[in-house]
């Protein structure tokens, strides 16, 4: 790691530490002074209406959408945007190797087989042999129940299968943190469960996870903490039992009312 890592490495269990995050696109301020920490092994759900800034916050954690103000620390190391271009590239690539990310639209590489999707980054960045890479692919794909599709191409898979491969691809880099950006939003309803199951299994294995979602049931059953965001601020946070059952803020109540009634209607 780089030499910025001198501070408070052992201070806490804290893995993600976001301090005064601020992000604006011109006049539009999408994140307004957000501070947030996530402990090692903790599973946090971020919920909120669209445009609340939840995806932007998630994407700031590995600097995909760089903040315009504030700091992001991962495992005691600050993401340093002020480095010269080359050094920044090296620094951010090292940081990102610790953080797996799963996207709404999978973003599997269509020109690579399932196996190659999983092994490409480890082979390139960790210099592992073909044999090791194959073993890794088999192990990770077994984990998500996709071993029998190892030599398929992404276009030959269903949405749920694609997302499971995308999770295996991220896990193959052995990340310490997994980010899920609406991982099930683009899926047909009947395919959501298979992806949720994989995420639940990861939770049981104590992976540190931050999950942007609008599936309240899933958030309630898996997460240690729920964060409700609206208009670029954290409105309310706490254990799911509190946030979902007894929210204190009016905005949270309104959001949940809408969302839960929608849910109730679709469940009929």
């Amino acid at each position: 790691m780089s030499d910025t890592s001198t501070t408070q490495k052992s201070e806490t269990q804290k893995f993600v530490d976001i301090r005064h995050a601020q992000k604006s696109y011109g006049e539009l301020e999408v994140l307004k002074d957000i501070s947030l920490t996530v402990d090692r092994g903790e599973i946090v759900a971020i919920i909120g209406p669209s445009g609340s800034g939840k995806s932007t916050l998630l994407r700031a954690i590995n600097d995909l959408d760089p903040l315009t103000g504030g700091e992001v620390w991962l495992d005691g190391v600050q993401i340093n945007k002020d480095l010269p271009h080359r050094q920044y590239e090296k620094h951010i690539n090292e940081m990102r190797q610790q953080v797996g990310m799963v996207f709404q639209h999978f973003n599997l590489f269509p020109h690579l087989s399932v196996r190659e999707n999983v092994t490409m980054a480890p082979k390139l960045l960790k210099g592992i042999s073909d044999a090791e890479a194959n073993a890794l692919a088999e192990q990770q794909l077994t984990h998500v129940g996709m071993l029998e599709r190892i030599d398929y191409y992404p276009s030959q898979l269903s949405g749920g299968q694609k997302q499971r491969v995308a999770i295996a691809r991220a896990l193959a880099m052995n990340p310490k943190l997994m980010l899920f950006d609406e991982a099930t939003s683009a899926l047909d309803p009947e395919l959501v469960e298979e992806v949720n199951l994989v995420m639940k299994r990861l939770a049981e294995e104590h992976m540190t996870m931050i999950i942007v979602t609008h599936e309240m049931d899933f958030a309630a059953s898996v997460c240690d903490r729920v964060i409700f965001m609206d208009k670029g601020v954290v409105v309310e946070e706490g254990p799911p039992s509190v946030v979902f059952k007894n929210p204190t803020q009016e905005r949270t109540k309104e959001f949940l009312r809408k969302h839960l009634s929608q849910y109730a209607e679709s469940a009929k």
Binding site: M101, F109, L124, A170
Partner: peptide, 29 residues
């Protein structure tokens, strides 16, 4: 799709690696 390069970057690939391994092979086709 920009998401392709983005996904490669989140795995830790550099800009050049992401272009060479992910964007370019698809663009060539």
């Amino acid at each position: 799709d920009h998401g392709q390069a983005e996904a490669a970057r989140t795995l830790g690939l550099s800009k050049a690696q992401a272009f060479r391994k992910v964007t370019l092979p698809q663009a060539l086709r």
